[in-house]
Amino acid sequence: MKAHISEVFSSIQGEGTLIGRRQIFVRFSGCNLKCNYCDTSKNQDPLYGEEISVDELFERVNEIITPDFHSISFTGGEPLLHADFIREFLEKHNFKALIETNGSLPKELAKIVDLIDYASVDIKLPEHEASSNWDDLFGCELESIKILRDEGINTYSKVVVMPSTKVDLVGYIASRIAREVPDTSNLSMVIQPVSPLGLWADEERKLFRISEKAGEYLDVLVIPQVHKLLKVR
């Protein structure tokens, strides 16, 4: 089996609850959404990058493993467009793995949930992605979180916020997760201020308000994209 992959590289995880961990990033091509803050827009093209096999990917990963290696991050694009490829890879090669997904493809997620260790579900806001029905999209994201939690996967939800983001909307999302996911005791919500951080020069108090509102329902962390602050990929 083959998949289009734009890059395979080793770096420091700059987002979410695995921040600071040394990972090997496998960036798949193709995405089913078009978010206006996307910083890997070339990867929306399903044919971008190089088509490689499972065994070729293993060779590339194996070449760049370092002593501080923690896990593989399957990212994109949308990696769940390649769920069958990921399953074959992880069945053949026993790596700890993080899936970074927009959560819109719960049936594809179900194909690999028994093989992954960590998951980041990037919950979109209506202001992020205008081509989809937001209620339906959010419903799929909730279903993905339930699938992950049912399997006991270490999971966090992530919400990229902008200065224009409505505080009550983030609160609504957090309340729905708290109400509809059976166990949220270890389920954090990461509030990620959109880059560049200069956009927040006059809006830092809004981040506090967003965090406070979401914190009524879930454990909350506010974490910017640290890899951009470090100026690494």
Rank of each mutant, 00 (worst) to 15 (best):
L187I: 01
E100L: 06
L197W: 09
N43A: 13
H227Y: 05
Q225W: 01
E100K: 12
G171K: 03
Y48A: 15
C35S: 03
V54Q: 08
L80A: 09
E129Y: 03
F89E: 13
D136Q: 12
Q192C: 11
E51L: 14
G49C: 08
V121D: 02
I12Y: 05
K2N: 15
T184E: 02
R233E: 15
S144D: 00
G103R: 00
V232F: 04
M189S: 09
I86C: 08
E203C: 05
C140N: 14
E63P: 00
I223G: 03
E212S: 14
I112N: 02
S144G: 03
Y37L: 01
A174P: 06
I147L: 12
H4G: 11
E180L: 13
E216M: 13
F89Q: 12
P46H: 02
D122W: 04
V194W: 01
N102T: 12
V170G: 01
I12N: 04
D219N: 11
L229V: 12
C35Y: 03
H82S: 15
V232S: 06
Q23M: 13
L33R: 08
V160M: 07
L148C: 05
A130K: 15
I5N: 12
H93I: 06
V220M: 02
M189D: 10
A214F: 01
S188W: 14
G198Y: 05
L199N: 12
G152P: 01
C31K: 12
G20M: 10
S185T: 11
E216N: 08
I123A: 09
S188V: 01
A3T: 07
T40Q: 11
D168L: 04
S131G: 08
C38G: 06
I153W: 11
R233D: 10
I65S: 09
D114L: 00
C35M: 06
K34A: 14
E15W: 08
V167P: 00
C38W: 01
M162E: 12
M189P: 08
F85T: 01
D135I: 02
K111H: 07
L199K: 15
P193S: 07
C38E: 02
